[in-house]
């Protein structure tokens, strides 16, 4: 009798668990909006302005990829934190945001100078985001950086982000800095963190808003010898030298100018609606940004 009661109880528990818990959801690949890049800026109305660069799968898979049709779309949202930004974005985007294919996190210099540990800690704790996602500190706005991140020789933006950072294998002007490296170095007590330094430059513009390249070209003559320290792996030993990041960028950006024409380091961009009269903008990977603690060293 007791055996029967216990067995019946067991079966009731199993059945009620399956019926009452709503396990019948399923998700397939088309239910997600894949974020290929995240940009973090200082917000106007809130703490952060987060830009999500979302992949458009139909553009990625089309064989005749038109260069004027972008394979990504950028959504920008203001929120107090990244997690709340993701939640807010999920509220109006039809698909659920998925960070599994996020290749780069771009943080603007303004935010970096205030401290990036909160951002890095939030992202490293996200189980979707890969630890080998690159971190770029952008001299311009992160949203603008993402907007200009288009390559004429590479149709797929995610692939482009992946390849650009790995160019460190055959060029000494940058380093393949992953978010796991940044997190580890922020937490370490014997070294400083560093990240890829990038920017948007305009060629032939009357008002050169991101004029680091013109500034750097004038200063490159006087600061010619610091590129090696800019690429130093151990920031603590050379942090005082590296704190002058503009001098680091000078050598690199000057050297990168000729190569920019050949599109080896940075992608030449054409925004979808740019007219022939507007100056072309491009992103440059210009060196390394070094941190003191979790704030950008000056």
């Amino acid at each position: 009798m007791l055996n029967k009661i216990i067995n019946i109880l067991f079966i009731i528990i199993i059945i009620s668990t399956f019926l009452l818990s709503g396990y019948h959801t399923k998700q397939d690949i088309n239910d997600f909006a894949y974020v290929v890049a995240i940009g973090v800026d200082k917000g106007d109305t809130d703490d952060l302005k987060i830009s999500f660069q979302l992949a458009i799968p139909s553009q990625n898979s089309s064989e005749e990829g038109s260069s004027s049709d972008s394979d990504t779309v950028i959504d920008t949202i203001e929120s107090p934190s990244i997690e709340s930004g993701l939640s807010l974005a999920n509220g109006y985007i039809s698909k659920k945001l998925n960070l599994s294919h996020c290749k780069v996190v771009v943080i603007s210099e303004k935010i970096a100078s205030l401290g990036i540990s909160d951002i890095i800690y939030t992202l490293i704790n996200n189980v979707e985001l890969r630890p080998d996602c690159n971190v770029v500190i952008s001299r311009s706005d992160a949203g603008e950086f993402l907007n200009k991140s288009k390559s004429e020789i590479e149709n797929i933006t995610a692939k482009y982000y992946e390849i650009v950072a790995t160019s460190s294998k055959y060029t000494g002007f940058t380093s393949d800095v992953k978010i796991s490296d940044v997190f580890d170095r922020i937490s370490d007590t014997f070294g400083e963190a560093y990240a890829i330094l990038g920017a948007v430059s305009s060629q032939g513009a009357v008002e050169d808003s991101s004029s680091y390249s013109s500034q750097s070209s004038s200063s490159s003559n006087s600061n010619g010898g610091n590129s090696d320290t800019g690429s130093s792996q151990n920031g603590s030993d050379s942090s005082s030298q590296n704190s002058d990041t503009s001098s680091n960028t000078s050598q690199n950006s000057t050297s990168s100018k000729p190569s920019a024409d050949t599109d080896t380091i940075a992608g030449e961009t054409s925004s979808g609606n740019s007219s022939s009269n507007e100056p072309s903008s491009k992103i440059d990977v210009v060196g390394l940004a070094v941190f003191r603690g979790d704030t950008l060293a000056r």
């Binding site: 199993i14 668990t17 396990y23 998700q27 189980v127």
Partner: peptide, 19 residues
Amino acid sequence: TIIYFENIDIKIVIMTFVI
């Protein structure tokens, strides 16, 4: 549940182990 089964009730996962 955190890593893979966000939308599945934890009781299902527990029940699997128990069974």
